[in-house]
């Protein structure tokens, strides 16, 4: 059933540019880094001395987080927006599917698209490092960690944005919340450890990256459960 819901969601985003949006984030981040390295290659190479890969990851990480925050809000909004636009909630929920399957299908679509973004970023980072002639001894663990831990740490926001975008026909509020989240996340260094807006950043650079990702996963599941409980009780108009 999970597979069927996902296949339906993927069918619905045909010709909808959602895949392009998912690619736009990583391409933009790496594009900007290409400019960055093009302009100040010597400076950056000297700065990071004998660990150029680490330097590249640090540079990419600083741009990736805002892109992730705004990207997840846009993806959640667009995937729910397909139903709002079509006036299809009533049709969907009058079919023999459970509300959990419908809610889950939407969340899975967003998770899948964002996972594709993170994977694309990983590949592009790798490609850029190799093109710049960095040591072919690629620090795999670091690259994989940086690509996917922030994704896990951002799960509460994916859950929140999915929930808001699904239950509200007007996407202005969900997108405002998403944008504010992105702005807030930029001040992560000033945040106490318990604030979730700082977790994706902590998942990139701090020693307790795993803990940040784990917290994100746990809180994300909780927000999903709350969102689902709300959606399940809601009357559909």
């Amino acid at each position: 059933m999970i597979g069927r819901m996902l296949s339906v969601e993927l069918l619905k985003i045909r010709r909808k540019l959602l895949w392009m949006l998912a690619a736009l984030g990583p391409v933009g981040v790496i594009g900007l880094q290409a400019v960055n390295y093009g302009l100040r290659y010597d400076y950056l190479m000297k700065l990071y001395g004998d660990s150029p890969w680490e330097g590249l990851l640090q540079q990419v990480g600083s741009l990736m987080l805002p892109a992730l925050f705004i990207g997840l809000a846009l993806v959640a909004s667009m995937s729910a927006g397909i139903e709002h636009q079509a006036g299809a909630w009533k049709q969907l929920l009058a079919l023999p599917v459970t509300r959990l399957q419908v809610f889950g299908g939407k969340v899975m679509l967003s998770l899948l698209l964002l996972l594709a973004s993170c994977t694309l970023l990983l590949l592009l980072t790798l490609g850029m490092g190799l093109l710049l002639g960095f040591d072919p001894q690629v620090p795999w663990a670091e690259i994989v960690r940086q690509s996917y831990l922030p994704y896990l740490a951002a799960l509460p926001f994916i859950a929140l944005q999915s929930w808001l975008s699904i239950v509200m026909a007007n996407q202005a509020l969900p997108l405002t919340v998403g944008t504010l989240g992105m702005v807030l996340s930029m001040f992560s260094l000033l945040m106490p450890a318990w604030m979730p807006w700082g977790w994706p950043d902590r998942a990139v650079r701090s020693a307790d990256a795993l803990q940040a990702a784990g917290s994100g996963l746990a809180l994300g599941v909780l927000v999903l459960l709350i969102g689902y409980a709300h959606f399940a009780r809601k009357d559909v108009s």
Partner: peptide
Amino acid sequence: LVEYPSYYGHL
């Protein structure tokens, strides 16, 4: 079919 038809315009 409730009220108005539901359809995905791009499909």
